[in-house]
Amino acid sequence: MTMPHAGTPERSVVDRALSVLGAFDRQNRTLTLSDISRRSGLPLATAHRIVNKLHGWGALERSDEGGYSIGLRLWETGTLAPRCSPLAEVAQPHLMELHARTSAGALLVIRDRVEGLCLSFAVNGPHALMSCAESGDRVPLHASATGLVLLAHAAEAVQNEVCAGPLRAYTPTTLTHGPALRQALAKVRREGYAVTHRTPDPECSAVAFPVRTADGTVVAAVGVVAQADTFRPAKLLPLVSATADAVSQHIRFAGRRAAGATA
């Protein structure tokens, strides 16, 4: 049995199970047992034991070729997340309409600590734009229009953490200096929306507006991502604003209805 190094706490069973699940990502959807062991940092025997448990519960599925992928049971559990499912369901038809009217990729993003998380999307044409490739993608707060909207309305502690860096330079136009990012966030709050050019994708530009609850709390951001060469913010701004307002109104109505049902 492999013993932990002196002074190094042994990883709990939960930690090890989470490291197995964390071995999967967008670029590694199917992994062999050896892959899981290597990517999780677990001994092969330990990985095998945990994988068997997860497979038995349905968190992992095994193909005929022996590879493992995330199972439907885990996906079903994930859909219960209260911040995700209702918002995504409400937003999707509005995003589809926004996409149809702009021919641009349309997306809904929420903040998960110091990252954005794409909940819902409508993407156009043969080129899947980086920032809204599919639901579940992570979006950098400092380098995307939706991220800037979310960060501008986040708690001061979150803003301080992100601005303190390091800030990854996705392209030459990415904001990588904390004071410059703070100025950009102040501009977003002042103007009510965010616009980015060629960041985080050098071929794309974007615009985003906040989604608010009845008390004004920003819970998400609606944005569109278009090819930078044909990007026309003056045309997109009113359309994206109207979509964000429509999603906000649905959220407020759902909140009033829920409050009435429990009165």
Rank of each mutant, 00 (worst) to 15 (best):
L60D: 08
R26E: 01
S63Y: 06
N28A: 05
A59K: 02
L107I: 14
T77R: 12
R39C: 07
W57P: 00
P86L: 08
K53D: 12
L31P: 00
A91Q: 09
A100I: 08
G71R: 04
I36Q: 04
S19R: 10
S103P: 03
A45R: 13
I36M: 11
R73K: 13
S40I: 04
A88Y: 02
R73D: 06
A104E: 06
G22T: 07
W75S: 12
Q27P: 01
Q92K: 15
W75F: 11
E76S: 08
R101S: 11
A104K: 03
R101D: 11
V90H: 08
S63E: 10
D64P: 03
C84K: 10
G41T: 08
G105Q: 07
W57V: 15
E76K: 05
Q92V: 12
R38W: 04
I36E: 02
P93I: 13
A88G: 11
Q27I: 09
T79M: 08
A47G: 13
L33S: 07
A104R: 06
A45T: 15
E65T: 15
G22D: 09
L87M: 07
L33V: 07
I70G: 06
R29F: 00
R73V: 03
Q92M: 10
H99K: 08
R49T: 14
L95N: 04
V20K: 00
G67S: 14
T32Y: 01
R83L: 12
G71N: 02
A104G: 09
G58E: 11
T77M: 06
G22F: 03
I36C: 02
G105H: 13
V20N: 02
L31C: 02
E76L: 12
G105K: 11
A91C: 10
A91R: 06
R83F: 02
P93L: 08
M96C: 04
A104D: 05
I70Q: 06
I50C: 03
C84G: 06
R29E: 06
T102C: 05
G78S: 09
P86R: 12
H99W: 00
L80A: 03
A59D: 12
H48Y: 15
T30A: 06
E65R: 10
